[in-house]
């Protein structure tokens, strides 16, 4: 069995405008691995390509190039989606369903037997705080209630991988806490949780690993703990050789990788300058040097901002 819940190799999606012939690279060669049992946050500004990336994982959108696998199985195989629970952003459950009816339908599609469904549905409704609403049509539910019943839908077949698109969207603080408690329980049971969210604080609180996507490309990936480690200097080197990478890793506080490059965090200016000397001696190039702060929001802003500045610079040169 694969040690990775999700693996993508150079995954790309290009949308072509039928009339103008213009092409939009929504996802551009993303190679990403998500280890089994981890909690992973996918971050990025609006229009970065996060939703397209998630849709390709679920085969709702077909990749233009590259491939994606779930637990080692190509996503084009419907069976690959068997162990996946999914809650989309802006979901639209048919309003003719009651909460129970909706759970019953989606559980049946996930291959849960009728007897098991009868047992599971009341339990799940209770766990999301909707036990008294099971017989009520979804048209009467508030947005937060729909989000919670949607989460129950994603959990009904005890998935090994849970993909959540903005799970706290529209949920009040109590409901948000309830969702986080459920996710923590799942994490302790070894479920891999993949969250696509705008809420950086929520991702920082809950996820162990993150990836930041910007303009369709993977801008940064690493462990939250390392990325948000104390203040210092972040140094990005372009495709360092193995020996150089090892040497820098020894000197650095933490390391993160993105698209073949590596980003090292140094605690002091002296360590940073020593590292730059080593990099230059080995003929490797320095991509960027950034003073670090200690929140995920800062890491996010630096990463996205750096990319925006780089693009503006290129456009200026052109």
């Amino acid at each position: 069995m694969s040690q990775y819940a999700i693996q993508t190799e150079e995954l790309s999606k290009v949308f072509y405008h039928r009339w103008s012939g213009r092409e939009v690279r929504a996802v551009d060669g993303i190679s990403l691995t998500v280890r089994r049992g981890t909690t992973f946050g996918l971050l990025g500004p609006n229009g970065a390509g996060k939703t397209t990336f998630v849709k390709m994982l679920l085969s709702a959108t077909h990749p233009t190039a590259g491939r994606a696998r779930i637990f080692g199985r190509d996503v084009s195989d419907p069976e690959a989606r068997g162990p996946v629970g999914y809650l989309p952003e802006n979901h639209r459950f048919p309003t003719y369903f009651t909460g129970e009816g909706m759970l019953d339908f989606y559980a049946a599609l996930s291959g849960v037997s009728a007897a098991r469904r009868r047992q599971l549905i009341p339990e799940l409704l209770e766990s999301v705080g909707l036990d008294r609403w099971g017989g009520v049509r979804l048209g009467k539910y508030s947005k937060g209630m729909l989000q919670r019943v949607g989460l129950a839908q994603a959990l009904i077949h005890a998935p090994e991988l849970l993909i959540l698109d903005e799970p706290s969207d529209g949920v009040d603080p109590v409901g948000r806490r309830q969702i986080r408690d459920i996710l923590q329980q799942l994490e302790s049971r070894g479920t891999t949780i993949f969250i696509n969210s705008h809420l950086l604080v929520e991702v920082e609180l809950f996820c162990r690993e993150v990836a930041i996507i910007n303009r369709g490309r993977l801008a940064l990936t690493g462990e939250v703990r390392q990325l948000t480690a104390g203040k210092g200097y972040r140094l990005a080197a372009v495709s360092p050789a193995d020996a150089l990478r090892e040497e820098l890793t020894r000197r650095a506080q933490s390391v993160a990788g993105f698209n073949g490059s590596a980003e090292f965090l140094f605690a002091t200016r002296e360590d940073l300058n020593a590292a730059i000397d080593i990099i230059r001696q080995s003929g490797c190039e320095v991509e960027s040097v950034t003073p670090t702060t200690n929140t995920l929001e800062d890491v996010f802003m630096q990463t996205v901002g750096a990319a925006a500045n780089a693009k503006a610079g290129q456009e200026g040169k052109a």
Partner: peptide, 18 residues
């Protein structure tokens, strides 16, 4: 057409059904 509505079709396609 109703099953192809955004927000509904993604959920259907996420299930292990062709």
């Amino acid at each position: 057409p109703s099953i192809l509505e955004p927000g509904r079709i993604e959920l259907l396609l996420s299930k292990p059904v062709s």
